[in-house]
Computed example of a mutant assay.
Amino acid sequence: MFKIGCHLSVSGGYEAMGKDALKIGANTFQFFTRNPRGSKAKDIDPLDAEKLRKLLEENNFGKLIGHAPYTLNICSADVKTREFAAEVLEDDLKRMEYIPYNYYNFHPGSHLKQGIDEGIRYITDLLNKVLKAEQTTVVLLETMAGKGTEIGSTFEELKLIMDKIELREKIGVCLDTCHVYDAGYDIVNDLDGVLDEFDKIIGLENLYAIHLNDSKNPFNSHKDRHETIGEGSLGIEAISRIINHPKLYDLPFFLETPNELDGHGEEIKKLKELYKH
């Protein structure tokens, strides 16, 4: 069954997100765990979380994604920024257990001229500190576009992080179609080749989710600007190949396109028409 959703606001509560998803024909969704540009997190109402869990079960939802705030930079050169990242990450993983057995996604961060090796050391040290054997949440490293000193724009960099994680079963990858295309992986003309490369370096068994976004920028631009489905440089034919690919079609897909709720509903309708399984 096609698992497709978009990014929803948590401001109205957990159950409200599930109801919003149903309104637009979605059967999964992503949400920010807290203010995406800040640090504040709304208190969780356990009853509200329970209502969402019931709604998810009754409507056969796919796995959800909780997304870390954009301000999170685990590998910053600034000690206070890294301490903030540690507090947020640890708190968010506790919060995710109100809706267990889902995913938590974050951007690996920018090393800010410290060098990739030092940046990866900060990332892996913190993940090894906060990941717990008893948690049900799988933490996903997002593929990045390669702006500035971003870590994670190559499969090799993600593999370097993953190889140093002690609780290996608690870590995976979320592939962002806009990001990988902007990073230089030609998923428009050589999707099979890119997936073969991913499998060789990281392993497709470690790919848990797809951020399904078109791109405002040309191939290999390293800019990261999302576009609505079919209106960017990837195009609708490439998007169709992605959602129907035998190595991808059973993964959950999450839209992060520049759209409001109704617009996402139209995109979801279009994608369902393209989905052939």
Rank of each mutant, 00 (worst) to 15 (best):
C75H: 00
A41W: 08
D163H: 04
I161Q: 02
E150S: 15
G115I: 07
I120S: 03
Q114M: 15
V138S: 04
E58D: 15
D91M: 11
L89T: 08
N220C: 06
V138M: 12
V130G: 04
H226W: 12
S233D: 11
Y104W: 03
F155L: 08
F155G: 03
L126D: 10
L141Y: 00
N27M: 09
E97I: 12
A85V: 11
L191R: 06
G146L: 11
V173R: 02
Y185P: 14
E237N: 08
L248Y: 00
P36A: 06
D192S: 06
L274I: 07
P36E: 10
L89Y: 04
Y101Q: 09
E166W: 00
D199T: 09
Y14R: 00
Q30T: 14
K51Q: 14
I236A: 01
F106W: 01
I210L: 13
E118Y: 03
L160E: 15
H264S: 03
C6D: 02
I229L: 07
L22F: 05
C178F: 02
D92E: 15
G5A: 05
V194M: 13
Y70T: 07
H245L: 13
E97R: 07
G38K: 06
L47R: 08
L204C: 10
I165Y: 00
R225V: 07
D48Y: 04
G5R: 05
Y122Q: 10
L112N: 05
L271M: 10
K54E: 14
H245F: 12
D182V: 12
L72K: 03
L167S: 07
E256V: 10
I123K: 03
N59F: 03
I65S: 00
N244H: 07
G172C: 11
D262S: 10
L89G: 03
G62M: 10
E83Q: 15
P258W: 08
Y70D: 11
Y181V: 06
G38F: 09
T28D: 10
N128R: 11
L22A: 04
E260Q: 08
K247M: 14
F198Y: 15
F84H: 09
I229A: 01
E58F: 00
D117W: 01
L112H: 02
K132E: 14
K80T: 13
K272Y: 05
A21W: 11
K272Q: 13
L141C: 09
L251W: 04
V130P: 12
G109N: 09
F84I: 09
D92G: 00
L93S: 02
E166A: 08
E90M: 06
D43T: 14
E231Y: 09
E87V: 09
D20Y: 03
A41N: 05
G184A: 05
I236K: 00
D125E: 15
P36Q: 12
K223W: 02
V130I: 14
L127P: 11
G172Q: 06
R168N: 12
E58T: 02
I24W: 00
F155Y: 10
L89M: 15
L195A: 01
L55I: 12
D48L: 09
R53L: 12
L274N: 02
P69V: 12
